[in-house]
């Protein structure tokens, strides 16, 4: 039993990270219909910015606290999200380009981010200091490390805040209106450009936060973006692209299938690598709208 409860903590933490990346996809996808695969690289960038803020390596006296790393990640990633939108997406939309054009341009952004990270920080993985250490902690039978509990707490709080934003604020309703019908929303006076910018800024901030939260468990390394992009995308497909809660549910389902499968299924552990892809294919064929259908289908 204690094995299972340890695994629940581990899978919930991993699922929370997938959910945050899925949320980053969703924040951009809903109002713009653009799938931005660069969110994985944005998460990696968040991890490196966090490490840079906390460990100056050569001058330990200048090492910043964790809260400073959080602010640095939100500010830097928000600025990068704005820059990417302004330089790649906005000009294409202004010229009336097909929706595939920004998607392809953002794939180019993915490459630029990855190579820039390698050039700036090198190819070696960088250790990322955890804010609360790594000693095992237990809440009853639920045991894990403090970072896992931090990830779970931050994710659930953030999802609640985003849910409230969409459900209870005018800005959130503007987002939803644009998602439902872009043209009609524009005719109603909603500033589409501003919504698009906000989508990229918020998506980049959420992705960066996911990277920052995950890095103490995995280190910050330039190869971390692609797996996160795949896991986040799979979580999005599982949960459904239309609802905030879907991203959270999708992330958790994916992580639980991965980790419970690796632990209890009588198969070689190497085969568990295929779980996300199997889930992705199953959902795309059998339930393309995901576990939580979008609002218009309700």
């Amino acid at each position: 039993m204690s094995d299972l409860l340890e695994l629940v903590v581990s899978a919930t933490a991993s699922g929370s990270i997938y959910a945050l990346v899925a949320l980053a996809y969703l924040l951009i996808l809903r109002p713009t219909s653009i799938i931005n695969f660069a969110v994985g690289e944005w998460a990696a960038t968040g991890a490196f910015v966090g490490v840079a803020a906390q460990t100056t390596l050569a001058w330990p006296a200048l090492d910043g606290p964790y809260w400073l790393a959080v602010i640095a990640v939100l500010v830097c990633l928000g600025a990068l999200g704005w820059l990417v939108e302004a330089l790649t997406v906005r000009p294409l939309i202004a010229r009336g380009a097909n929706i595939t054009s920004p998607i392809l341009a953002l794939l180019g952004v993915l490459v630029i981010f990855r190579e820039s990270l390698t050039m700036l920080f090198g190819a070696d993985p960088l250790p990322s200091p955890p804010p609360f250490g790594f000693k095992r902690v237990a809440f009853g039978l639920f045991a894990g490390v403090p970072q896992q509990f931090l990830i779970i707490t931050v994710t659930f709080v953030l999802f609640a805040a985003v849910w409230l934003f969409f459900e209870r604020t005018v800005w959130g309703r503007a987002f939803e209106a644009v998602a439902l019908n872009r043209r009609a929303a524009a005719l109603m006076g909603i500033n589409l450009r501003r919504v698009t910018t906000f989508a990229f800024v918020s998506g980049a901030m959420v992705a960066g936060l996911a990277g920052l939260l995950m890095s103490p468990l995995t280190s910050a390394h330039y190869m971390m973006g692609l797996p996160l992009a795949i896991q986040g995308f799979t979580a999005l497909v599982i949960g459904g692209v239309g609802r905030v809660e879907g991203a959270l549910l999708g992330g958790l389902v994916l992580a639980f299938v991965e980790q419970l499968g690796a632990r209890y299924l009588p198969i070689p552990s190497g085969l568990t690598l295929g779980f996300p892809f199997v889930l992705l294919i199953l959902f795309l064929f059998l339930r393309p709208s995901g576990l939580m259908p979008p609002r218009e289908a309700r």
């Binding site: 695994l7 581990s10 995950m214 795949i230 980790q259 552990s269 190497g270």
Partner: peptide
Amino acid sequence: VIPQGATSAVA
């Protein structure tokens, strides 16, 4: 096998 990109090796 701990796959590349894994977020936990607890299992």
